[in-house]
């Protein structure tokens, strides 16, 4: 069986790609063998996994890949059930396009703020382009850093229609635990009671995608 491959992408920085990648991959690791490919030269996912204590490692192996992404994915596809690719925040190097060309789905974290939405809208072109070759690519928007009581978070529904990409029912709330998990080099799944609610919301996302 070949791995199911998921990209986490948005050419806008700071929207939560790495945070979602790490926790999504950790959730997948409870369902099978998962590999996380850090395709961002900033190496945040790699830093994250290196921040863990020796006796409590991050539950997914993280490898860093620059170019030749599709070839490298092919090399690992038989050894894993799931591969998650944390994409770089740019369309210019071609890495994101490679990731999209080998993925069954792409999760696009967006923040509930106008400036972020404006900067994120161009992902639609990249997806349209990737679909020329990878026709079955399924894109999903994941609203990140949701604050349910804020007017902007509510207003997102209307604005997201403009992306012509379905938004997942489940979003990711703004929670300190996501940052704390990074400090400890862990996912919200293995950080005890503090991470339970966050792990549930990541699980909802996984259920929607799988």
């Amino acid at each position: 069986m070949s791995a199911r491959i998921f990209s986490i992408a948005n050419q806008k920085g700071g929207t939560g790609k790495t945070t979602l990648s790490m926790n999504f991959a950790a959730g997948l690791a409870q369902r099978g063998r998962a590999l996380l490919i850090d395709a961002d030269p900033q190496g945040s996912a790699s830093h994250w996994s290196r921040s863990s204590a020796d006796d409590k490692p991050f539950p997914v192996s993280v490898i860093s890949v620059g170019g030749q992404l599709s070839r490298e994915v092919g090399r690992f596809a038989e050894d894993y059930d799931f591969i998650v690719i944390d994409c770089p925040p740019t369309l210019e190097t071609g890495v994101m396009q490679s990731a999209l060309s080998v993925s069954e789905s792409v999760l696009i974290p967006v923040l509930p703020s106008p400036v972020d939405l404006w900067a994120s809208i161009r992902i639609t072109d990249a997806i349209e382009h990737a679909r020329i070759r990878n026709r079955s690519l399924k894109p999903y928007i994941v609203v990140n850093q949701l604050e349910p009581r804020s007017a902007l978070s509510t207003a997102m529904k209307e604005a997201l229609d403009e992306f012509d990409i379905p938004a997942l029912q489940g979003g990711v709330r703004r929670r300190a635990i996501y940052r704390n998990a990074a400090i400890e080099g862990l996912s919200v799944y293995c950080i005890g009671k503090r991470g339970e609610t966050a792990a549930q919301e990541i699980d909802e996302i996984i259920k929607e995608i799988l």
Binding site: S49, V62, I63, S64, V65, E72, R75
Partner: peptide
């Protein structure tokens, strides 16, 4: 590709 030293 570079396997990160921390691969675990």
């Amino acid at each position: 590709i570079t396997a990160m030293p921390s691969n675990r």
